[in-house]
Simulated scan of single mutants.
Amino acid sequence: MQEEIAVLAAITGHQPRDEALFIEALTHGSHGAKGGSKGVNKGGGSLAGKDYQRLEFLGDRVLGLAIATELYRRFPRESEGALSSRLNALVTGSLCAEIARELGLPPLVRLGKQARDDGGRDSDNILGDVLEALIGALYIDAGIDVAVAFVIRCWGDRIGAVQVAPKHPKSALMEWAAANKRKPPEYRVVWRDGPDHAPRYTVEASIDLIGSASAEGTSKQEAERAAAAALLTKLENGV
């Protein structure tokens, strides 16, 4: 366990005081079901029996606060709607997973054998959750300032890279339908595949009498967003 703690200290720039908390942030629910390594922290306490879900819940809120505060500071003339669009684009599960890979978190994730065999260490869902759990652990162990500084460092230039706030594809598609006097877009899941810890969804977006497009994602929301973007592209290109 000390090797993982040393790596986390290097990644976060913070030496964990409560080591069990950070091991918890790395632990998927499948870990330790049968014959998993339990481990003991410096204080002699067991590291078994907990997974990252509660820390992910907390870290998700800390991440949102950190990014929202930075956007508020950087873009003083933008409306609430524009800031919300930027925020939504910066806290997606796929972006969190991308940053988790950049930080080198995949080898540290603690999974059960089946989840490992199913490619859990490359799952956007798992990696995004682990990063948010790590943010939650930092918040508890080191305080809000350290957690926010970590978020701003990890997200880096992404926060200000888009000079025009991106519009959510589902909102843009809804506006297109209204402007062209069509019924609102509809979304339906046409396929779900993969294990519970790494699902893949295929969603079809359609506008009645106009057309449809399908796309995949690691969550229903992500697939809906991608399908809306695909349909918008078809409509704009006259396909």
Results as ranks from 00 to 15, higher is better:
99 I>P: 02
134 L>V: 11
4 E>N: 15
62 V>M: 07
171 S>P: 01
50 K>R: 15
235 L>E: 05
220 K>Q: 15
162 V>N: 11
213 A>S: 10
126 I>F: 03
86 R>E: 03
205 A>I: 08
103 L>A: 14
48 A>N: 00
18 D>Y: 01
200 R>V: 15
211 G>C: 09
6 A>H: 08
206 S>H: 04
69 T>G: 08
127 L>S: 03
63 L>K: 01
169 P>S: 12
64 G>T: 07
154 C>L: 05
20 A>H: 07
211 G>L: 05
238 G>A: 07
12 T>I: 08
138 L>T: 05
41 N>P: 08
42 K>I: 14
137 A>L: 05
10 A>I: 11
215 A>R: 02
120 G>Y: 06
63 L>S: 03
229 A>D: 00
103 L>N: 13
101 R>A: 12
125 N>D: 02
141 D>W: 01
115 A>F: 01
88 N>A: 14
79 S>Y: 01
81 G>N: 13
143 G>H: 09
121 R>N: 06
56 E>D: 15
106 P>M: 09
43 G>C: 07
24 E>A: 05
145 D>P: 07
190 V>N: 07
75 F>G: 06
42 K>P: 14
76 P>Y: 01
81 G>L: 10
231 L>C: 02
213 A>D: 04
204 E>I: 11
30 S>G: 14
205 A>Y: 04
189 V>L: 10
237 N>A: 14
66 A>F: 12
35 G>E: 11
227 A>Q: 04
168 H>N: 13
27 T>L: 10
43 G>W: 06
78 E>T: 09
24 E>W: 01
60 D>Y: 00
142 A>M: 05
81 G>S: 12
116 R>H: 13
174 M>Y: 09
172 A>T: 08
206 S>G: 08
215 A>W: 05
3 E>H: 05
205 A>N: 03
149 A>K: 13
186 E>G: 08
200 R>A: 12
23 I>P: 03
173 L>C: 04
15 Q>C: 14
69 T>L: 14
222 E>I: 15
155 W>D: 09
218 T>H: 07
146 V>M: 12
161 A>D: 01
42 K>H: 13
12 T>C: 08
192 R>C: 11
209 L>D: 15
